[in-house]
């Protein structure tokens, strides 16, 4: 197990970023060439949003995974967080530029539509984390403060899950499954057993 963890720990961030760049480029290329169907804007927006949610959940799963299986991916966590932010930014950009297009409509949507308000709140809460996702910030803030700041992940995950649930038409299972996963991974962090401390 230790060897597995050492190998995984040696994956450099640039490799993760390099791999992570593929799906959005691929989706965009598909959108340009008819591969996303006859209404590619919505499809691109939804695919990027779903991708962001999946990486967000993967990031959130890293610590419970270590506790349950001893697979330690903590070293990848920061890079995955940055990847999530990049995907969310692209999702937002597609919504702004390709989908809604009209400035007054964008603002009206943000303030009047709860699911968009919730999504935007999640995006804004990610900004302090991505800005401090470098070693210099970690040193400056000190590990305690840095870790406390990065607990913003928890509200971000809940907001992201809600954002998806709130935008569907009719009763649909898929967004509820994502939200349930998020809640389970958050619940795993609560020190249910008061005798056992959790970091």
């Amino acid at each position: 197990m230790q060897r597995v963890n050492q190998t995984l720990g040696r994956i450099p961030p640039w490799l993760i970023y390099g791999i992570a760049a593929f799906p959005p480029v691929w989706f965009f290329w598909l959108g340009l060439n008819g591969g996303l169907g006859v209404e590619p804007i919505k499809e691109l927006e939804h695919r990027l949003g779903e991708l962001a949610l999946q990486v967000l959940i993967a990031t959130l799963a890293i610590r419970p995974l270590r506790e349950w299986t001893h697979v330690n991916l903590l070293k990848l966590r920061r890079s995955l967080g940055v990847v999530t932010f990049a995907y969310v930014s692209l999702h937002l950009l597609v919504w702004l530029v390709l989908d809604v297009q009209i400035l007054s409509e964008i603002w009206a949507d943000i303030v009047k539509r709860p699911y968009i308000t919730v999504g935007m709140a999640g995006f804004i809460l990610m900004i302090p984390m991505v800005v401090t996702s470098n070693n210099l910030s970690l040193r400056k803030l000190g590990p305690k403060k840095w870790r406390r700041l990065h607990r913003l992940m928890y509200p971000v995950c809940v907001l992201a899950g809600l954002h998806f649930v709130m935008l569907t038409k009719g009763f649909q299972f898929e967004p509820l499954i994502y939200l349930a996963l998020i809640l389970v991974l958050l619940a795993a962090r609560v020190p249910w057993n008061l005798g056992r401390a959790t970091a």
Binding site: I102, E105, R113
Partner: peptide, 12 residues
């Protein structure tokens, strides 16, 4: 309630 109906986009 969840979105504006002022605009639309032609499919295609």
């Amino acid at each position: 309630p969840r979105w504006s109906q002022k605009y639309e986009r032609r499919v295609g």
